[in-house]
């Protein structure tokens, strides 16, 4: 069997990551915006903090504001930065441009439908220059439609790609990014979620838990499983250990493991598979201990670091021949 060109595999893996990152950035920004709108009348300071939280969920992101920005200013600048700034390397526009660059490098490995949809999405975002002068309503509307476009691209991939190594690497990039984003979100949101409820404003508290679930596209899935009862521990367990919701860490890592196994059918265990096996085994057998631990947010951060190490191992094994 002829393997895939290592450079092409790397590009297609990153294409998967960047597409997922773009959709995550759009989705999480949308959710934080809605949450900020929802609570601004109840707790204006918290509404500002929501935007600071967003930057914590995307470490390395840049939002240019004055020293003590008003809520309107930080809202507008955050929307602008996470939607269309090319200075913010975690913005939707930056991620789509990067995905499109990866796609252009390995265009021969993609289907025409995929490239055209991705190119259209990139060109649309590129047309929103700082001079375009979009207002907040327009940016909100674009965030929604861009998510639909990204789903369209991901749909084209699922519908048209050959079921081969290329798709495996693309999916690996995608689930790796998804697991990482869920863990970062949990590490930022868990401290307030697990704080004592007698010390907080309950409507705001539950709005924030709902937003956290929506930010990882899991609110409806959670309700289907557990009803409307937003018990914080149950939410944490759901996002870490649920076996069906696609953004749970368990599902992402299980899929990653399956892809790695499929790449190496019949071959001895590879280093990334071994590393991932250790992480998933720990999650499998130590679920109760993990959830009972006092620093679950720190555990999530540590898991995010472990996942990055698996990424490095994949890179060394498959992309650096």
């Amino acid at each position: 069997m002829i393997g895939m060109l290592a450079r092409a595999a790397e590009n297609i893996y990153w294409l998967g990551r960047y597409l997922e990152r773009a959709e995550s950035a759009a989705r999480i920004t949308q959710c934080m915006d809605q949450l900020s709108l929802e609570i601004r009348g109840l707790d204006a300071d918290l509404a500002v903090n929501i935007w600071t939280n967003l930057q914590d969920m995307f470490p390395g992101s840049i939002v240019k504001t004055s020293d003590a920005p008003s809520l309107d200013e930080i809202t507008e600048q955050s929307l602008r930065s996470f939607l269309m700034s090319y200075d913010n390397q975690l913005s939707v526009a930056y991620s789509i441009r990067s995905a499109r660059e990866n796609a252009r490098v390995i265009r021969e490995n993609l289907t025409r439908e995929t490239f055209v949809l991705l190119n259209e999405c990139h060109l649309r975002l590129q047309s929103y220059t700082p001079q375009t002068g979009l207002n907040m309503m327009e940016m909100r509307s674009i965030l929604s439609s861009i998510r639909q476009e990204i789903f369209g691209i991901q749909g084209a991939i699922k519908q048209t790609f050959t079921r081969d190594e290329g798709l495996l690497f693309l999916d690996m990039g995608s689930v790796m990014e998804r697991a990482y984003r869920t863990l970062l979100l949990l590490s930022v949101k868990l401290p307030f979620m697990l704080s004592a409820t007698d010390q907080v404003d309950l409507p705001v508290y539950y709005a924030r838990i709902r937003a956290a679930l929506k930010a990882v596209a899991s609110l409806e899935n959670y309700r289907r499983n557990h009803g409307a009862d937003l018990d914080p521990k149950r939410v944490a367990r759901f996002l870490l250990f649920d076996r069906r919701t696609p953004h749970s860490v368990h599902v992402c890592l299980r899929e990653l493991k399956q892809h790695l196994e499929e790449l190496e059918i019949g071959a001895p265990l590879t280093n990334p598979a071994r590393m991932l096996g250790k992480i998933t085994a720990r999650l499998e057998y130590e679920e109760q201990e993990i959830l009972a631990g006092s620093n679950l947010d720190v555990t999530c951060q540590k898991l995010a670091t472990d996942i990055n190490e698996v990424h490095d191992a994949i890179s060394r094994l498959y992309f650096t021949v």
Binding site: M1, I2, G3, M4, L5, A6, R7, A8, A9, I106, E108, E165, F169, L263, Y318, F319, V321
Partner: peptide
């Protein structure tokens, strides 16, 4: 495959490309 020079290697007077499954 579309290759760049850095994707190719010559060993024993034969040309190989660097793939996910080693040299082809």
């Amino acid at each position: 495959p579309l290759v760049e020079g850095r994707d190719l290697i010559v060993e024993d007077d034969q040309v190989f490309m660097r793939t996910t499954r080693g040299k082809q």
